[in-house]
Design a protein around this nucleic acid. Structure first.
Length: 954
RNA sequence: GCUCGGAUGGUGGAAUUGGUAGACACGUUGGACUUAAAAUCCAAUGACCAGCAACGGUCGUGCGGGUUCAAGUCCCGCUCCGAGUACCA
């Protein structure tokens, strides 16, 4: 806090004198709510349901800072508002409690992650309780609890036992696929599967061994094992995501990273690409968020074209969005990793090609992407054959073609694609212009609409769209292509080489995965000595000595017992962070259920989340994966909805206001901000708690802050040391963290809640500045005073004045509208205006003050409860009915008309509301001030908008 | 590069369908109360000009145009900032 030592006590002493004792009131009501389970939701009710959810937090060791509760406060206001409006509200909270920091801490200290996590959760809960949220804690979930993750494992098994049928356009049980294979083989099956699936007949299928069948089925399952190329860091013993690698070395530790093929579990999310895309149209999310998901899914419609290779049995399939430009093809480019490269390269080019492949392999994918300007590539010596002209097309390899997208090969049309154009220019390859009346001497032409094709045989004079369709048709005729839709969305790797995550419910029989039977779940995390990878490079679970599955006892047994007859090794990887968070919304509906992940009854009642609030950083991760799992569970009849979140709002980040002191270069001397420009200084972050609201540094506090500053000297301005300020992300290392506990202690939770809302629009990023909080705090004190005379509670039973009723109803209307529009900042202003007006009116009538207490309750629930109780109620204000807005109190008989001249407002004139247009014009023109303004000029035109404005032109 | 946001006083931010720009707060200044401070209350507060004062005037919502009786708001063209994403064929 930006206050010197002892300051806080002074504030509190002063508060004791006042009757608004927020510390006492808030504690009282928090206990009341907990004791009476005020916010416990019932799974059946006469009332309509409403489900308000926050993205649950990862309980980190640092605790909450004031930025974290922002979204929770907003959702809490909404949840409380909905309760007043007569809804049965589900508003739960829990913890995403598997994760890296606890594991990292375990590696360093040996402390079991479960213990760290438990302690962190306890701290989180204390902090959350202090803010007065209306969570139904009886439904709390923790992803790291066996009772929770047994269902995560169960869903994994469901995915394993399913395949995706594109004909029915949904997931189906794998047993049905087996039946199809047995009856008719796989040629008639249109399923999401691996690319290397060979065709087989029913006879072949029935004749194959059970192991061979399992192997085939794995290629169809919605979760499957596959060789994936990953960024492997041997020193860290784990796979790294692209953003964990900087300049080819690991971000953490700076160790080398290599690209390595590993067998990993993957999720066949690509099967759902089209439905994930289409589903966006029926949910109420921000356009930017939907756009992120659309980009991520990356649908592109085009064609698959097959090029024959001269003197070779191989063919090169390419994906293109512009089959209309097929006559512009002058060469082809393959990704260096492309399987065919080795097979088609001619002996005289082999050395060059190998050298190029080796050079590109050393560069990480990220390096390759970052460096777009350097053009590189080599010729393979091989030629493909143009499907129509049969002309030879040289085949090159180049790293601008990505192995992971499309087929890893492109037909290069330099006249129509800038990358192909640059490549052609660089290597002096021919460029063939196939666009009518288009100049391509400087750059490629990528326009579509209105483009007419030329030099293209049967496509000549056709317009883009016609040419495109015609080209596909002709390709189909010669059997060398077809229309195809391609998606950027890749299957998601689901294995992590970590300890602190859900174990896979899988063991291996002859290298083939088998699922543990559902009734034996959960498969609990084993104890390990060390949380690091094993010496042989196995994941941390490789350290466990009791980690084998006995299929007779159906339990985990010692590794020594592995005999591959009844005891088999268990999977050593764990699931990624997004496993538990992909379905938690459904668990809240029925958190204690021991026999199902959620009962049909509970899910049918609550359906899905009506309002979801959380950060935008989850746009393409969590929010895509949970949509995928929801659709899957829906397909398999386990849910009645196929979207998890109807409406979603991203809260903006609350930024910190860092403070800086300026140290003279090489000295332990600090110069005040406004004098610092004259010196050569180095800015140093200083803890914001050492600075007051006027940016003055507590010099003594600063000296005590860190030993190296104990004998620091200062160059001050008028005896004050002024710090510099800068808005940055709130973080410990920047010493700008403000803790909600301190705010609650100094000003109360109600003040914190309202101030967080008052800062600005919910979705916008905004800096925190504790200095402004007094405005909101004063408001609550003024509110309190309305209900009190001196120390004593006192409201009058007399009829309220028309004026006061007008103030009240104006507020009811505006606040209710604001909440529905999630414009919480403006409703705080509205409350301030209302209380200012009522104070001026000396209103203390129950008729007004009672509804006002309900109006304020979602925002400042503690003070509202206290006032409500004092008003004589013996039930919580949380269940009181929301006041009904009545237009009649707002009806005005007169209007203060702004009278403007040439659009500029000069004065106002009070006129009756029912005055006609003509009369208004007459009265205004007759007015002395009007004549003064006109100064003898004749008005050219008079605009009168009744109830709004008068404008005189002239 | 592309996509999506945004730009309003010293600060955070208001402004339904175009209709009194700057609500509400913070901060600042002055005053009351006090031995003093805190707290509380009152007043002023976009910039500039004029004046003893009252009444005024000019300019003002990132920049340049436009539509309109009237533009922060609508249209066209820019500048800057933020976020996401990227050799996607």
């Amino acid at each position: 806090m930006p206050f010197p030592e002892g300051f806080r006590d002074i504030i509190r002493d002063a508060e004791q004198d006042m009757s608004y004792n927020f510390n006492q009131i808030e504690k009282k009501w928090q206990e009341y709510w907990a004791k009476n389970q005020t916010f416990k939701a019932k799974n059946n009710s006469e009332k309509p349901k409403y489900y308000v959810l926050d993205m649950f937090p990862y309980p980190s060791g640092a605790g909450l800072h004031v930025g974290h509760p922002l979204g929770y406060i907003a959702s809490d206001i909404y949840a409380r508002f909905k309760r007043h409006k007569g809804f049965n509200v589900l508003h739960p909270q829990g913890y995403d409690s598997f994760g890296l920091p606890a594991e990292q801490y375990a590696i360093q200290t040996g402390q079991h992650p479960a213990i760290t996590t438990e302690a962190n959760i306890k701290r989180y809960r204390e902090q959350l309780d202090q803010i007065g949220f209306s969570f139904d804690w009886s439904r709390e979930v923790r992803t790291s609890e066996p009772n929770y993750y047994r269902w995560t494992q169960w869903i994994f098994i469901q995915l394993f036992e399913s395949w995706y049928d594109f004909e029915a356009d949904k997931a189906r049980p794998i047993t049905e696929l087996e039946k199809i294979f047995a009856a008719e083989g796989n040629s008639g099956v249109n399923a999401a599967c691996d690319e290397d699936v060979a065709e087989f007949t029913a006879t072949e299928w029935n004749g194959s061994s059970s192991e061979e069948k399992q192997e085939q089925l794995l290629k169809y399952r919605l979760t499957y094992l596959a060789e994936t190329e990953v960024n492997w860091c041997p020193q860290l013993g784990t796979v790294l995501a692209n953003d964990e690698i900087v300049n080819g070395v690991s971000e953490r530790g700076g160790y080398p990273v290599i690209r390595k093929k590993m067998t990993q579990w993957s999720m066949r999310i690509s099967a759902y690409a089209e439905r994930l895309l289409q589903g966006l149209d029926k949910i109420d999310w921000t356009e930017s968020l939907k756009e992120s998901q659309r980009n991520w899914i990356g649908k592109s419609v085009g064609a698959l074209v097959e090029f024959n290779i001269q003197d070779s049995e191989f063919k090169i399939p390419v994906f293109t969005t512009r089959p209309d430009t097929i006559y512009g093809v002058t060469f082809m480019t393959l990704a260096p990793e492309h399987d065919l490269v080795q097979k088609i390269t001619t002996p005289e080019h082999k050395a060059e090609v190998d050298a190029y492949i080796e050079a590109t392999a050393k560069r990480s994918e990220r390096d390759r992407m970052a460096d777009v300007k350097t053009i590189s590539g080599v010729f393979t010596g091989a030629y493909a054959e143009h499907p129509f002209t049969k002309e030879p097309v040289p085949i090159w390899i180049g790293d601008y073609v990505l192995a992971g997208y499309g087929t890893g090969a492109v037909m290069a049309v330099p006249c129509g694609d800038q990358r192909d154009y640059d490549f052609a220019k660089h290597f002096d390859l021919p460029i063939r212009n196939i666009f009518k009346d288009v100049d391509i001497s400087e750059e490629a032409y990528s326009g579509k609409e209105g483009t007419v094709i030329a030099n293209s045989d049967f496509l000549n004079d056709l317009e883009y769209k016609e040419a495109l369709n015609k080209a596909i048709l002709e390709l189909e005729k010669i059997g060398q292509g077809r229309g195809k839709t391609n998606y950027r969305l890749r299957d998601a790797v689901f294995s992590r080489q970590r300890y602190w995550g859900e174990p896979f419910p899988a063991y291996y029989v002859n290298g083939l995965p088998q699922m543990i039977e559902k009734e034996h779940l959960p498969l609990r995390l084993p104890e390990v000595e060390k949380y690091l990878p094993t010496e042989t490079g196995e994941p941390p679970l490789g350290n466990a000595s009791v980690w084998a599955w006995d299929i007779e006892k159906n339990e985990v047994v010692e590794n020594e017992k592995i005999d591959h007859k009844t005891v088999y090794p268990l999977e050593l990887n764990t699931m990624p962070g997004w496993a538990g968070s992909s379905w938690y919304l459904f668990r809240y509906m029925d958190a204690g259920n021991e026999t199902e992940f959620v009962s049909e009854e509970a899910q049918k009642y609550w359906e899905n989340v009506d309002l979801y609030i959380g950060g935008s950083e989850h746009a393409t991760g969590h929010l895509l994966y949970s949509r995928f799992w929801t659709k899957f569970l829906y397909d398999r009849g386990m849910l009645t909805v196929d979207e998890p979140f109807k409406k979603l709002i991203n809260q903006g980040m609350i930024l910190g206001t860092s403070a800086f002191v300026y140290r003279l270069e090489g000295e332990n001397k600090f110069v005040s901000k406004n004098l610092s420009e004259a010196h050569n200084v180095q800015p140093i972050h200083v803890d914001v708690s050492l600075v007051n609201a006027s940016d003055e540094l507590d010099i003594e506090g600063f000296k005590n802050w860190r030993p190296e500053f104990s004998d620091a000297e200062f160059i001050t301005e008028d005896g004050k040391y002024i710090v510099g300020r800068e808005v940055e992300k709130m973080s410990k290392s920047k010493y700008n963290v403000v803790n909600p506990d301190d705010i609650c202690e100094d000003y109360g939770a109600d003040t914190l809640r309202m101030y967080e809302m008052f800062l600005g629009p919910l979705e916008q990023a905004k800096p925190w500045n504790t200095a402004g909080i007094t405005g909101v705090h004063n408001f609550l004190k003024k509110l309190w005073k309305l209900y009190h005379k001196g120390e004593n509670f006192e409201v009058s039973e007399e009829k309220a004045s028309a004026e006061s009723l007008k103030s009240l109803h104006k507020t009811i209307k505006k606040v209710a509208e604001d909440i529905e529009n999630f414009s919480f900042n403006t409703s705080v202003s509205t409350f301030m205006i209302c209380v200012n007006e009522l104070t001026a009116q000396k209103c203390n009538s129950r008729e007004v003050l009672e509804p006002l207490a309900i109006l304020i309750a979602p925002y400042a629930p503690h003070i509202a409860e206290e006032l409500w109780e004092k008003l004589g109620h013996d039930t919580s204000v949380a269940t009181a009915e929301y006041p009904v807005f009545e237009e009649k109190y707002l009806v005005e008989s007169t209007k203060e008309y702004p009278i403007s001249f040439n659009g500029k407002m000069r004065f106002t004139l009070e006129l009756p509301m029912d005055m006609s247009k003509e009369e208004i014009e007459k009265t205004v023109l007759a007015n002395e001030k009007t004549q003064q303004q006109l100064n003898g000029r004749e008005p050219k035109k008079v605009i009168v908008v009744p109830g709004k404005i008068v404008n005189i032109v002239g």
